[in-house]
Design a protein around this nucleic acid. Sequence first.
DNA 1: AAGTGTTTTAAACGTATGTTTGAAACACTT
DNA 2: AAGTGTTTCAAACATACGTTTAAAACACTT
Lengths: 213, 213
Amino acid sequence: MAQKDTARSILDAAEELFSERGFAETSLRNITTKADVNLAAVNYHFGSKKSLIQAVFARFLTPFVAELDKALNTCDAEQGEQPADLMSLLRLLSDTALRSGADRPERLRIFMRLLGLAYSQGQGHVRRFLRVEYGHVFRRYSDLLTRATPELSDEDRFWRVHFMLGATMFTLNGVDSLTAMAEHDFGKPTTTPDVIDQLLPFLASGLKSPAGN
Amino acid sequence: MAQKDTARSILDAAEELFSERGFAETSLRNITTKADVNLAAVNYHFGSKKSLIQAVFARFLTPFVAELDKALNTCDAEQGEQPADLMSLLRLLSDTALRSGADRPERLRIFMRLLGLAYSQGQGHVRRFLRVEYGHVFRRYSDLLTRATPELSDEDRFWRVHFMLGATMFTLNGVDSLTAMAEHDFGKPTTTPDVIDQLLPFLASGLKSPAGN
DNA sequence: AAGTGTTTTAAACGTATGTTTGAAACACTT
DNA sequence: AAGTGTTTCAAACATACGTTTAAAACACTT
């Protein structure tokens, strides 16, 4: 019980602080102070700062990937031979992601910030960790995407999928600043699901855009 | 002469190291070692690490923004009342960016990585610096974008422009890894201009995508 | 060649970091 | 209640950082 509480407090504090200030800019002292635990607790429970970072990712990603895997199973079972269409696939992913942080709605935003940081900051160990640990599910999803866009060459699809990834990462990364700007400029409040509703058609149009010119 | 050489060496080394490892992860000792100058030279020539970071941005951005401003002038003069179309505007921006690092072609990639880092890492002072120093030109470009997409509501355009920004940033940010992957998977080599040729139609399609669903 | 302002150098300063330590506090079985 | 394994704690450790200093080296005018 005590173990669980301390480790959880550390993960909570680390998740929030990392997402706000980045990994290198967040010290273990920042984390343990916010979590109200002793400094040494991090190294006791997680071994090192690196392992703590990976644990933060694992806590979000493990249930998410499990849910995504399940969703892909039922998707496969339902459809038989006929492949799922693009928009449904995108919805499947975003719904799973949104549901995965169900306890607190800002969880997805926080996690996306972490993911963006991990990729743009040095943290190569995070990339390696993610690929080794969760790669197979993302490959599965990628195969479905391929079947949903048979008209594209592999090369075109490769690039466009990365364009989509970029738009998504960047947007959800800064979704709090962006929604604040949008609310300031246009009055009406915007939630993360609202933003995703705007994003998905953009992504689908881009992916299906006529090749060449 | 000696002054110029040392300061330039520092900027060169800093630019490269920052783009590879991030700002916080790059120490002044890393930089001065690579530049083969004394540690104190950074504080002597630039005052502080923060100012050095800003100087790295300024060295790329000042000529770029000047060229963009010029390009926008001739663009305005040519067209009179009739607004430039979307694809031309995108081309104008990418051409200016590509030409701006003409001395070395990988310069744009490096700079894009820096920009991405500055936004996803804490570096709020960089954001402030960029807005104060170069904001007006970007506002000018943004106005042209608005006139090129009169069918969009301000709100839709706001979001989609940010989607475009994200796709662009992410792509050019990691363009070296991506081109390496593409070359490995598809054989033929891909240059940054090639990637941009793929990217622009994607962006245009996304921005013009039918609203709603 | 002397003098003057600029640039470089080696060394040190103060501070902050991640990690380790050994004892104290705790929980839980016997 | 004693004993045992786990968890917490304050303190210290070693290291790395950005920055400052004061003297040396340099460039350039007079």
